[in-house]
Amino acid sequence: MLSYLAAALPENTSAAARLLALQCALRMNTHMRVRLSKGVMRSLRLDTATGPSHEMEHARWLRTTPGGAANEIAAELLDVTLLGQAPARPDRRRAADWALRAGYAARAIGPLPRLASVYLTANTDPEFGTGLGDLEQMARACGTQTAELSGTLDQLVAAGLLGSWQACPDSGDLQWTSPERRWKRSQPRSHDNSPEA
């Protein structure tokens, strides 16, 4: 879904609006309607009255609709190709909850680090705690430039949310390690001192 949104949303869409779009796309029903509780919006640290939802309306990607309960916002998504991109609704709902958790630790840093954290976690090999991707593709998915993305990756490392990262200037490849992977690599190897049988 992150790759689809990177292509479907206007290039200048902010990271906050992209976080909102991701949640909407993953939580929509088969009629392309979505209801987001204000608790979800608070978890995303998004203002329900202004900002990202207005940005997405201006981009003609969604339209807020009346009739939502006092503790939620309701919207209709206008990108009809979303239905062909998304897996079944139960899988999407689990992915939406996962995306909230994946970016939660970066909530204090801001929307761009939070979106970058979701992107990196989604593309990290869970067995090895490492990832490989294209720096420009990640920048596009996060709605930023590669120069700004470099600073964001440094912020994630400084906050302990990313182990390490490096970009190859020739190929544009981006490599990273999760913080758990960095921690495991720094541990001394244990030696078996038990006597041989």
Rank of each mutant, 00 (worst) to 15 (best):
C24F: 08
L26R: 02
L174Y: 00
P113M: 09
E148H: 15
M28C: 08
D134L: 08
Q85W: 09
S53P: 08
T177S: 14
V40T: 12
H54V: 05
A96P: 01
G163Q: 05
L22G: 03
S150A: 15
P87M: 08
R63T: 07
L2M: 14
N193W: 10
C168Q: 15
L20P: 01
A21H: 05
Q166S: 12
L77N: 01
V80L: 14
V118Q: 00
A25Q: 03
R107E: 07
L44M: 11
P52V: 09
S178L: 02
P169H: 03
D91R: 13
M138F: 04
T124N: 06
D47G: 10
A116N: 09
R182Q: 15
M138G: 02
A96S: 10
L20W: 01
A59P: 02
G151I: 07
K184I: 05
A86P: 00
L115F: 08
D97I: 01
T81P: 01
T152P: 09
M28Q: 08
T50D: 15
A17V: 05
A122F: 02
R114Y: 01
D170Y: 09
D97F: 00
G163N: 03
I109S: 06
S186C: 09
R63Y: 10
E127Q: 13
H31N: 11
A167D: 03
Q137L: 15
T130N: 10
A17W: 03
G110A: 14
L115I: 13
E127G: 10
R42E: 14
L77K: 01
S190E: 14
L5Q: 04
L44G: 01
Q23H: 11
A59T: 05
A147S: 12
W98L: 12
M56C: 11
L115H: 03
W183K: 14
P195A: 15
G172K: 10
T177E: 12
C142L: 06
P188A: 10
S37W: 02
S164W: 12
A16D: 01
A74P: 00
T146H: 06
S178D: 07
Y104P: 00
R182L: 13
A7D: 15
